[in-house]
């Protein structure tokens, strides 16, 4: 099939960007979206132009590197699918495809479709962990975890940190990302002692990074390539309320 791409091109963080139009020819339905971009890029290099920069790595939907707005939808039209796992068989010959980078204050554009998502790392650094220094652990089977709890924790832990939730949210909120980590760790017995502190620190960092607030549009859940549920946000809020109420906030260090 042949396609027309409208792609955001921006040379650097502080330069003005604009859309450019490219033709993608002889695209097979068995190509992934990124492989289609590879074809376009090879063509650009052969014509002496700069290829379109985009983040990608594992190309099997787990590393969370890739992500673009495709026709106004984060990661494109397929539900629960990262951009690298979106296959061209879902497009039709002659389609025009709009490609934009994630847009958020906390995700400044570095170049073309590449954005800086280090804000998400800082949210984790603020409290998205269980303090368990190497070597001090007791036998793994001494901690009993009901299967349902382990499964729920795993559902939330499946987050790949791609930032699609932020990109899709009309408010540029990172609540789904933050809520997922709070839910993952908060579901487990090992995560209880730091539960109050974790939610307060992570929420504070999330706000500090300049993400917006949650207004429950539900766009994040639809965009999430790992199907993470809005429930994680309710859970984050619950934990936040409890932690604020019990005064754990005063004990922040």
């Amino acid at each position: 099939m042949n396609l027309t791409l409208h792609v955001w091109r921006q040379a650097g963080p502080s330069t003005e960007g604009a859309f450019a139009t490219y033709e993608a020819r002889d695209i097979s339905g068995d190509m992934s979206f990124l492989e289609m971009m590879d074809v376009v890029n090879e063509g650009l290099i052969e014509r002496g132009e700069q290829p379109v920069a985009f983040d990608h790595d594992c190309r099997e939907g787990i590393c969370g590197s890739c992500g673009m707005m495709i026709n106004g939808v984060a990661h494109g039209p397929m539900k629960a699918t990262a951009t690298c796992q979106l296959f061209m068989r879902h497009f039709h010959d002659g389609d025009a495809i709009h490609v934009e980078p994630w847009r958020a204050r906390a995700f400044p554009v570095i170049k073309d479709l590449v954005v800086d998502r280090s804000a998400l790392d800082r949210v984790i650094a603020a409290g998205g962990f269980i303090t368990a220094p190497t070597g001090g652990a007791r036998d793994a089977n001494n901690i009993l975890i009901a299967k349902t709890n382990a499964d729920d924790a795993m559902d939330a832990a499946a987050c790949i940190g791609c930032g699609a939730c932020v990109a899709a949210c009309p408010n540029g909120s990172a609540s789904l990302f933050t809520g997922a980590k709070i839910t993952h760790l908060g579901q487990l017995p090992q995560g209880q002692s730091e539960r109050d502190r974790r939610v307060l620190q992570m929420v504070a960092q999330m706000d500090e990074e300049g993400f917006g607030g949650c207004t429950w549009h539900g766009e994040c859940q639809e965009a999430c390539p790992k199907n993470i549920s809005l429930d994680v946000i309710a859970r984050m809020n619950h934990d936040f309320l409890v932690a604020s109420w019990t005064g754990a906030g005063d004990k922040r260090d």
Partner: peptide, 26 residues
């Protein structure tokens, strides 16, 4: 909150298709 939310996306999308947001939420 509106100011925070607006500031969170200083550059908007040229094209954005809501997937779940309702008339009510928007």
């Amino acid at each position: 909150l509106t100011r925070i939310d607006r500031a969170a996306r200083p550059v908007g999308y040229e094209r954005k298709e809501p997937q779940a947001a309702t008339i009510a939420s928007r």
